Every structure is written in structure tokens, then in C-alpha cells.
Simulated assay, not measured.
Amino acid sequence: MKETLKPGIKYEHKFVVPTSKTVPSLYPESEEFTAMPEVFATGFLVGFLEWSCIKAINPHLDWPREQTVGTHIDVSHEAATPPGLEVTAAVELMEVDGRKLVFSVEAHDGVDLISKGRHERFVINKEKFDAKVREKGMHNE
């Protein structure tokens, strides 16, 4: 982690919602999801907010050796967004507690505020993290 990784880092990220990021595409295996409206899925919204936080702080990490993983998400999903609209996430790093990072997040689709809340990420050493995941996977063999 670089010395520049401090509260106050802000980032704005934009993304045009394609049909592939709507509810029926979230789990195509799910009969229930495929029957639902074609609007930006909450699961993809969460991923978009994570992506925005990653982009905000990557310049302040020793990327790609250091990366971050999401550890907590507490966000609303307040309005439906059809495909074709551009969503904008505005994120701000509010707290750095060791390797724990706390962000304030919100997203707007040009018409409505669609999400607001809080997201936590944890700084990892990718090599060590991958080794632990491989070890965990061996328990299934």
C-alpha cells in the first residue's frame, strides 16, 4: 500500500447498462430470474460499485501484487434502470483501518438516484491469497 492510500480519495465511474446486465441474465439457469423484468440487476449493480471502488484505489496499491477483495456491502437499490441508460457511480474512500478500506458509494442513472450505501474492501497479497484458496479447494478432493 502506498502512502497516498488515505481517506478522501474520490472516483466517478460510468457504464452504459447492456441487456447482459439485467435480471434475466443474472442466473440464466433460474426460471424465476429469466421471467423477471429486463432492468439492471442488483447483483450487477453491486459488482459495478465494487469495480468503481477498485478503480479508485488501484493507483494507490502495488497493483497487481496487491489487490482488494470485497468483504461487506450495505447498499440500497432504489430505482429500476432499463438497458441503454448510463449509470454513474460516485465513490469515496472514507476510512483506512490497517488493510480494511471503507467506502461511501452511490449510483445514479441520469434520471434517478439508484443506489447509496457503504462498501468495505480488504487489501490482500494476491500470491498469498491464491495459495490459501488453492489449499481450501484441496479439501474437496
Results as ranks from 00 to 15, higher is better:
E141Q: 07
R99D: 06
A79P: 08
P59Y: 11
D74K: 05
L93V: 04
Q67L: 14
M94K: 14
P24K: 08
E66A: 06
D62N: 09
D112G: 00
G110S: 12
L5G: 00
K14E: 07
M36S: 15
V23C: 13
K21N: 08
L5Q: 11
G8K: 00
T88A: 08
H13K: 12
N140I: 14
K116M: 10
S52N: 06
A80Q: 15
N140K: 06
Y27L: 03
P37V: 03
Y27G: 07
D109C: 10
A35C: 01
S52V: 00
V17E: 10
T81L: 03
R99T: 05
G43H: 05
K116H: 02
V111G: 01
P7N: 02
E12R: 13
K128Q: 11
P82H: 10
R118W: 02
I54M: 13
A131E: 15
P37Q: 05
K100F: 09
F103S: 10
A80W: 13
V23E: 01
V105L: 03
N58E: 13
P7A: 04
D130C: 08
G43L: 08
K100A: 08
G47K: 11
I114E: 02
V17N: 02
K21G: 04
P64M: 12
E66Q: 14
D74Y: 03
E92S: 04
N58A: 13
I114M: 15
A79C: 06
T88M: 06
M94D: 03
